[in-house]
Design a protein around this nucleic acid. Structure first.
Lengths: 247, 247
DNA sequence: CGATCGCTTGAGCAAAATCAAACCTCGTGG
DNA sequence: CCACGAGGTTTGATTTTGCTCAAGCGATCG
């Protein structure tokens, strides 16, 4: 069930079979099935549990008083919605599904027991949260410095690599359940401009995007068009030095 | 010496006198005096120590292959440049001074000993890093959804509140050693446009910005102009429940 | 079969970028 | 003490990018 989470944590360092089992168990106590556009955690919440994405997409967002909405992050299977809740008193943004989704609810106590028993998991969660921070920072660069075409190209590179890291790509393709309006809210562009820019990217042969399906015929070319530097995703086993059989 | 760091950590929860002393000691072993625009940590670095800002400003930034530069965060006294280095293999961005600065170098071992001896400090550092993440996310919103005037107004609100939290404001004023070019690289605007927008803000009586000195005659008005919501700064003792005299 | 949602297109407009030049201030060295 | 130069700020003119408004199109689903 928690395959993607485990695959993601093992991007940091290998886990023991016991640790993996404990994670499986923890994420299968309570599983909620959600419809598209349903809130998972709301701004102001002070949750007693942590939510893990098992299937489907969600996003972090904030709405300005005058209605403008900005998406600040995408959550795909394996991502955790509200890990920070261990420390922060309350959520400072809302997390809501994009597509239909399955979400595991892990009670704080269960998670605490898990991190106590397996320091390895604890370190991997720390790591996950730092990578998320790095992604946020890259989004600042993307939405501030890159122009429309580069911006969308960069987003597609990131999405593809993140999905590939948890085993959710199929050759050069993956599912991306975002509407053009959501792409606009992600990149800080207008819907109309996203539409026109997507047409340019398609015309340039950089992407094939139809329905919810994205194909990248030439990843290197798309990266070049996006000025993409994958460092920030930390895809290369940062904690590789650790041994899987230690706790 | 580490007054601002301590003040900042105590925003999370009070620290014991012993913990504070240990922090003072750790941040006074090696102190470097830096000139403006000098790198503190570089992309790709795998440092053996952590850098704490004692005096002056610095910033995190990234440069795109074609030369465009984006500032992704400001560091003021009390901030830590590379806390994430505990876990991540290498820096994914560069940190460089803005003004002249004094920076403490804390060897990893010293910091580890400190967090082992004082779990309270450990938790507060965790918290600091989560707040930084929240700030990054708010910058996404700022640079993507707000227009020039709101964007700069928002930045000034944030800077003022952050400085006030560590005791670096003086009534309605504070020092802000950023040039207009740096404001531009922060907000994702051009220097020229920043200049004109600052004039608008001045004309509207929202800010008095002369040299390196900022005065905000009416903070509420500036907040309103910025659509500013301070939640993300977590200025209200998130860990207030803890007792200062526990470790 | 009509309603809704998402995508597409066109026309006009506004915000911000770019280019270029002038100006100011402050530190430095003659 | 003044001239010089560098860095920073200001201004004007022009262009570009992306936004807004408005409408049409095409699926898909009760």
């Amino acid at each position: 069930m928690a395959t993607h989470l485990i695959r993601k944590l093992e991007r940091f360092s290998p886990l023991s079979g016991e640790a993996k089992h404990a994670l499986e168990r923890a994420t299968s106590i309570t599983v909620r099935q959600l419809k598209p556009r349903q809130d998972i955690v709301q701004e102001g919440d002070k949750p007693r549990q942590v939510h893990v994405m098992l299937e489907g997409w969600a996003c972090r967002y904030r709405i300005l008083p005058d209605g403008r909405r900005q998406i600040m992050g995408h959550l795909v299977p394996g991502d955790i919605c509200d890990l920070r809740m261990f420390i922060l008193k309350q959520m400072d943004h809302t997390v809501s599904t994009i597509s239909a989704a399955r979400v595991a609810e892990v009670p704080s106590d269960t998670l605490l027991a898990l991190t106590d028993a397996f320091p390895r998991i604890s370190r991997a969660l720390w790591w996950v949260s730092l990578v998320e921070e790095a992604i946020s920072r890259e989004w600042i660069v993307n939405n501030s410095q890159r122009e429309a075409g580069e911006r969308l190209a960069h987003l597609f590179c990131e999405i593809f690599l993140r999905l590939r890291a948890v085993g959710l790509t199929n050759g050069q393709s993956c599912d991306v359940p975002l509407t053009q309006a959501e792409l606009a809210e992600t990149t800080g562009l207008s819907t109309v401009h996203v539409n026109r820019t997507l047409q340019d990217l398609r015309a340039a042969g950089l992407i094939i995007l139809k329905g919810k399906h994205l194909t990248i015929p030439d990843l290197a070319a798309l990266k070049a068009a996006a000025l993409f530097n994958p460092n920030y995703l930390h895809l290369d086993r940062d904690g590789g030095a650790f041994d899987a059989n230690e706790p």
